[in-house]
Design a protein around this nucleic acid. Structure first.
Lengths: 201, 201
DNA sequence: TACACGCGTACGTGATAACGTACGCAACCA
DNA sequence: TGGTTGCGTACGTTATCACGTACGCGTGTA
């Protein structure tokens, strides 16, 4: 990672700290008193006050009740304006995983403090002859796009076999069980994009 | 479109309950032990175990530390989704655009049924020597990830010049003014992912 | 003035989140 | 086979979350 502009890391804690002001803003925007929201959410008014002032960090359970009281989803409640980012990853500084004849490189780590409810992983994968990739089933709602840069591979999705030649691409829901096999004579190179959080409206 | 089906929606309080299995899936997907993640997140391994098994509801504070340990934002960690699709695009059936020394191919057409306000485009771009790409500034909240497959290019983001060599990748907010230039001697090939509709706060 | 009525917050109490330690269980080597 | 290493989890203690109650404050009404 070479450059990251304009916003501090905002690693972990910062999110929790900023929930308070945001909650207060949301509540006041809906013209609700603490007791109003307490009624709607099932969370006591003093507790709401403490959360708003950043005196305590609510549990996920309480936070989602608060969100429900505001007619928001939990991630909507926790979403913060997280600014702009530029992250450059040189080829030799990539995070690399090795797995049974495969070399998998993470091209685009999630941006720190990323603002959206969508995350995108871009991966380069080298598949040696005979390699059998057995990746984890990605989180529900994930979508994966893969491009065959060199060689050919077979992609098994939910038991179904799909042949992919050089240059072919495929897009599929990555929460299905799937894996790549390279049964050809030459090594293959893939590029994959995993996009998570594509919730259906 | 090869397959399509759906799973029941998960709304309201259920979010908190389902964090456990989701956390476990994410941790195992990253091939981390409880102690590994404890180290990365600053949350104790037994606590992680309890959260994964749904025995306790973590505070927002702890949850965001966990998210940070997984290189995720908090809202990413807490998301639950549904749906499944598979689309295969052979190399010779791609939609292609030409623009001033560039060949741009759309690798992944938007999937039907996908959330209306989010679109993800995966593009392969060939940049001839001297090419100067001048793409539109994407809509606010867009994010772009580009990978240099061959050659080298220069990426100008908001007036700032970034040199990218073969294999380098970059992720940036695409609502900033930006363009690619290929001032090298050889042609270059890029792969870009543009995620639009990542609405801010 | 006096007396409601609404607001947000300090206080004291149980409940429980979160910690450090330690256990039982496999896999791997000497 | 005994020692080591790593895994996930049960245990007991401490920190703190979350509750109900009660207080001080400002505003409007009599």
């Amino acid at each position: 990672m070479v450059a990251a502009s304009t916003t501090p890391p905002a690693r972990g804690e910062g999110v929790a700290d900023a929930v308070g002001p945001r909650l207060r803003a949301l509540r006041e925007a809906m013209d609700l008193s603490l007791r109003d929201l307490a009624e709607r959410s099932g969370v006591s008014a003093p507790m709401l006050s403490q959360v708003e002032r950043g005196e305590t960090s609510p549990t996920i359970s309480v936070a989602s009740r608060i969100a429900a009281g505001l007619d928001l989803s939990l991630s909507q409640l926790l979403r913060l304006d997280e600014g702009r980012h530029v992250v450059i990853t040189p080829a030799d500084q990539r995070r690399t995983r090795r797995r049974r004849g495969h070399v998998v490189e993470e091209l685009s780590p999630p941006l720190p403090g990323q603002r959206a409810d969508v995350s995108i992983h871009t991966l380069a994968a080298g598949a040696a002859t005979g390699a059998h990739d057995d990746p984890p089933v990605h989180e529900p709602g994930s979508r994966e796009t893969a491009v065959v840069l060199e060689g050919g591979v077979e992609l098994f999705i939910d038991g179904e076999r799909n042949k992919l030649g050089e240059g072919d691409s495929v897009t599929f829901d990555a929460d299905l069980p799937h894996h790549f096999e390279n049964n050809g004579k030459a090594d293959a190179r893939l590029l994959a994009v995993v996009a998570a959080g594509l919730r259906r409206g």
